[in-house]
Nucleic acid binder design. Structure first.
Lengths: 165, 165
DNA sequence: CCTGAAATCTATAGGTA
DNA sequence: TACCTATAGATTTCAGG
């Protein structure tokens, strides 16, 4: 892996590491080294570099969507009332500190943002949105799409898509 | 943690473990034990139980959405042409083996499914959808919402939502 | 990039409440 | 049953090539 003026060049070894660790985040470094055919130390070093370069943002456990059945997910489409840059920045910054918002994507077109929200119940969800509307985020409209089933969750990004053209 | 006829009761220790590991999937077990105030062996045992009970589905690395800039994400709303149970099952099963589809949620209302799709380019994306339409999945309509920015990604589910009522 | 040894972590066995 | 401590074995880190 080479770092050159903020641009990262990922070589085939890096891609193999990413691909592996993306699907199997807690294997030991020695096992990872075996799978990508590197020594433990070299592999460990690359892993550290990939992390500090921000290519690997972090590691997490995925919990069962069912869990104890006590969590519901709602996809929320959000339209802001103005599209000023500072309003977007404000919204995007504020949303970071709202734990109920698990994901948020900016989207061109019909709506401005799509968010995935977790709540203990429908009542709690509605409560949450009511509160969110009063926080000066300039939300004009929102549409709630209740998730009835998590069909597929956070599958790894295919390595082919990671490779440089 | 008690397992009783397929129902899992999570005690405060389990919740602390889940909360920690959800945000920090690769800390050592001894460090995890410190943080939740358990001995390494007890903590390790609980972790194993949480995994084999399916509460923890797995561990993953989260990669930077920017990466090398060579991946685009598209949210795709899908409407099936019939709502027969077997068509839904077919769609949901088939989608599991399509690597481009990273997430898929079933949604009540305007559309049937919402999927997050990764592709190396817009051309590749359109290609992918054209192929998907020809696979007999009975897709009637689809709407593409191109993600212009990943504002927040896979934030941990708040522990309060995990706790039993 | 590799090897090899010191430091750290994990799994297991045995003991207590 | 669920926790603890102790320890042997595995893993990780780091110095040197």
């Amino acid at each position: 892996m080479k770092l050159q003026q903020n641009t990262v060049r990922l070589d085939p070894w890096d891609l193999r590491i990413l691909s592996e660790i993306q699907a199997n985040g807690r294997i030991s470094k020695s096992e990872l080294a075996n799978r990508v055919h590197l020594s433990a130390s070299a592999c460990s070093e690359r892993l550290r570099t990939l992390q500090s370069a921000g290519i690997i943002e972090g590691f997490y456990a995925r919990l069962s969507p069912a869990l104890t059945g006590s969590v519901i997910f709602v996809m929320v489409e959000v339209v802001l009332d103005r599209h000023h840059l500072q309003d977007q920045r404000h919204f995007e910054t504020a949303i970071q500190d709202v734990p109920e918002v698990l994901d948020c994507w900016a989207i061109g077109g019909r709506v401005d943002y799509l968010m995935r929200v977790a709540a203990p119940s429908m009542v709690a969800y509605q409560d949450f949105m009511d509160r969110l509307l009063q926080t000066g985020l300039r939300i004009d409209q929102y549409y709630s799409l209740v998730v009835t089933k998590s069909v597929k969750a956070n599958s790894p990004i295919p390595v082919s898509a990671l490779a440089e053209q």
